[in-house]
Amino acid sequence: MSEDLGVQVRSELFKRKMKQKDLADLVGISNAYLSDIIRGRKDGPKAQEHIKHIQKILDI
């Protein structure tokens, strides 16, 4: 995930008063895996699918 997208995700979570764990539960992945995606440590095809899902959930 690009750095800007990571910032957008964190910003949306803050605005919605959501925790990262809440988002991970909605996406159906672990909190640790979500953190890796947000930080750009995971960027394979499966992570890209999760990124699209995250964007849809947060409307970004």
Rank of each mutant, 00 (worst) to 15 (best):
M1E: 01
M1C: 04
S2I: 09
E3P: 00
D4V: 05
V7G: 04
Q8T: 12
V9E: 00
V9R: 01
R10M: 09
R10N: 15
S11E: 15
S11Y: 14
F14H: 12
F14E: 10
K15F: 08
K15I: 07
R16Y: 03
K17D: 08
K17E: 14
M18F: 05
Q20V: 06
Q20D: 05
Q20E: 12
K21A: 14
K21N: 12
K21C: 08
D22P: 07
D22Y: 09
L23D: 01
A24Y: 06
D25W: 14
D25F: 14
D25L: 13
V27M: 06
G28S: 14
G28F: 10
I29C: 04
I29G: 00
I29T: 05
I29P: 03
S30W: 11
S30R: 11
N31W: 07
N31F: 11
Y33K: 03
D36F: 08
R39D: 10
R39A: 09
G40Q: 08
G40S: 09
K42A: 03
D43N: 13
G44R: 07
P45M: 07
P45A: 11
A47S: 13
Q48H: 09
Q48P: 03
E49P: 02
E49H: 12
H50C: 09
H50D: 09
I51L: 04
I51W: 04
K52T: 11
K52A: 12
K52H: 10
K52E: 14
H53D: 11
I54Q: 02
I54G: 01
I54W: 01
I54A: 01
L58N: 05
L58W: 03
L58A: 00
L58I: 00
D59E: 15
